[in-house]
Design a protein around this nucleic acid. Sequence first.
DNA 1: GCCGTTTTCGGCCCGACTGTTTTCAGTCG
Length: 580
Amino acid sequence: MPRMNDDVAAALDELARLTKVDEQDPNSFRVRAYEKAARAIESLSDDVTEMSANALTTVDGVGKSTAAKIRQYVDDGRIDKLEALREQYPPGQLELLDVPGLGPKMLALLDEVLEVRDLAGLQAALADGRFADLPGLGDKTAENLAHAIDRMHLASKTRRRPIHDVLPVAERLVADLAEVPGVEQVAFAGSLRRFRDTIGDVDLLVTTADPAPVMAALRDHDLVSDVVGSGDTKTSVVTRDGLSVDLRVVPAASLGAAMVYFTGSKGHNIALRQRAIDRGWTLSEYALSDTETDEVVAGATEQDVYDALDLAWVAPELREDNGEVARAAADDLPRLVELDDLRGDLHDHTDWSGDGRNTMEEMVAAAAARGLDYLAITDHAEDLRINGIDRDGMRRQRRELADLEDQRGDLRLLHGAELNIGTDGSVDYDPDFLAEFGFGVASVHSAFTRSVADQTARLVTAIRNPAVNVIGHPSGRKLGKRPGIEFDLDAVIEACLATGTALEINSNLHRLDATAEVVRDAGRAGVLFAISTDAHTTRELDNARHGVTQSRRGGLPAEQVVNTWPRARFLDWVEQVRSG
DNA sequence: GCCGTTTTCGGCCCGACTGTTTTCAGTCG
């Protein structure tokens, strides 16, 4: 969460990359140690600037040496070893590593034999045949690298993209491949299944007795522009817009082991493997099996694999090597939210305000069709000049909603508003008018770049406002477009706990806000959450599943989500907050 | 570089694909 942690993680990642080149070994233990430390610092909720070297060594994956490097970075803004390596390997040379199929060994060979130290030099050496004459290399490798350079602008192994660009593609591929004759099961794994904000590539798993047709179906798919490789069990392609997709075919008896393996994360898998080794077993994508006898211990389902390792099944969203393995071993994992748990939606727009597309009647009917028991209509309020509703409008809408509730007799319909949080934390209207609403969401829609102190004060003021039940999309981020506001989470947590105000988990794939880190840290502190769709159309009510997944990624216990509560308990909470 | 219910030394996850090797090296995830 603290920004300095991200800077430190980035420095450690760069150190890993340079060390990989320096040692000419992608699996160097030192490289892996730096990478593991980077992930550990990234997911740490404590601020590294406030930690001593000793405190840093208590972080799993950080030892004395890395702790000293982190301290030096925090204190001096530099790391001696990093500076030395930067000196030794100029950026142009490192760019060569971005070429798919070119690793540290080839990098060293190019440097030593051909004195090639940048992309232009490589292209020249590929063109005039010097590359193909290198020991252990030939024409085919040269051809492949030339092709890889040509499409680098398309699919870069370093470029991750927002999940809203990737999930629809993956879901379409899964649906299409499921139609191929002989295919039994298809699923995506990888960081997409873990529901990270950004995705590097798509991993698809298929079970079938006959792999050839499904491999062909992927190679020939409309969305695919380039085939990187295709063998008996694995095919790699790139889509037209540059997304890498890997397809693996595994036997049905191995699907569980394969799902574990390809879902990751790497750190989570290594932790599982260690437990397997401790028991005299080995864990691969095919099975958990006995090292001596090769006898299969488990593999058909994920549950079997975790059971055999004496672990509770770990939800994919939690598999980030953040201590979830230890919690699974202690049977101490939280009961996470399922889509069926949601009884209401608390942030919904209609065509009463400028950007909603469906009528109130349509939105309510759609919510009823999805089995909800209560719904808050929260159109934009008057401060949003473009599309907010004025006071008379709000009163008329309130009467119409009450009539609708009477006519239908099924859902409890709350009349609220999505209030706009000004730069000073104030919201639309005045206290008396605000008190007429039955519900309130308040969100930041502007001034995203104020100081941390300003944004914190802004949020805390809004949280303390009794007309505010929920803080909508707390950071205001849009994935791939703009970062959210930065604020002091501890202060926000404290205010929420004092007032009972909930933080929203906005289900829109472009937002996923609160972030997983905020959900995790505020959730652990006991803060309440609302999983809301922010739907502007009836279709967008289906986004609730994404909000649920986001809450799971933050490890949030279902008990802390107010819209999983039965109607009476939920309404009590609404009134409790509003009575100050 | 990290780590310790066998260990403060000696381990550290595992397999597919490709190309260039007639048995393996490099890269990738």
